[in-house]
Design a protein around this nucleic acid. Structure first.
Lengths: 107, 107
DNA sequence: TGGCTACATATAGAGAGCCTACATGTAGAC
DNA sequence: GTCTACATGTAGGCTCTCTATATGTAGCCA
């Protein structure tokens, strides 16, 4: 998967993966890999800064937990994040529609 | 349309628009606008450098023409570009499939 | 005891592409 | 004489994703 293709869609992916259950960074990466059938293997250098950015934006909230001696920062979706995710889904839908129409026009 | 969303897809858009007829930069911008129903309004500062990049890559070839006293640089798809476009279409298809599955998983 | 793997987070710096803003020029309408 | 449409191009900035590196715990195995 070409990294550039993900530009501007990473936020939606991250928000959607914590929609129904709070997850920590490492688990988020695994969830993305599983949901995509292995196609998405996002490096930690992408995910951790992105999560912090989304928290700064108010879409996520985090708290520390210690599980089995290991520290985790667990992220959950805020109300604002939930609204954002809905908007991202709509945007994704119209995005694919527009690009699809240009790429494969039925003449 | 969020500019970042287009990242990595611009090449496919440009190649697809000159697939069946050579066009010059200005006309390419108009064609993108028309094919997208007005949703895509790509600035010249994006298109002209991108076209040059695609020519350097061997996917497009250009020649100058003068029409009505105005100079145009007309771009046509090369054989290599045609192959690239086919690849981009396949990549687009799998890209939307993967992101769509993550964004809206049917549980 | 030492080494390896899985788990877990984080930052610095590079790379690349799309954008804004600006520069330049012709043709035609009013 | 001014404005709009047509037409191309560059410089610099912005932002996101990636690679590479750093740090540390827990558990397994030899």
């Amino acid at each position: 998967m070409n990294p550039d293709a993900l530009r501007g869609h990473m936020d939606a992916l991250l928000l959607s993966v914590v929609e129904h259950e709070p997850l920590h960074g490492y688990a988020i990466i695994e969830a993305l890999r599983e949901r995509s059938g292995g196609a998405l293997d996002v490096p930690t250098g992408t995910v951790y800064p992105a999560l912090r950015r989304l928290e700064r934006a108010g879409f996520l909230a985090s708290e520390w937990a210690t599980v089995g001696g290991r520290k985790r920062r667990t992220y959950r979706l805020t109300d604002s994040g939930r609204a954002e995710l809905a908007g991202e889904r709509t945007a994704w839908s119209s995005f694919t529609s527009v690009i699809g129409r240009v790429l494969n026009p039925q003449t």
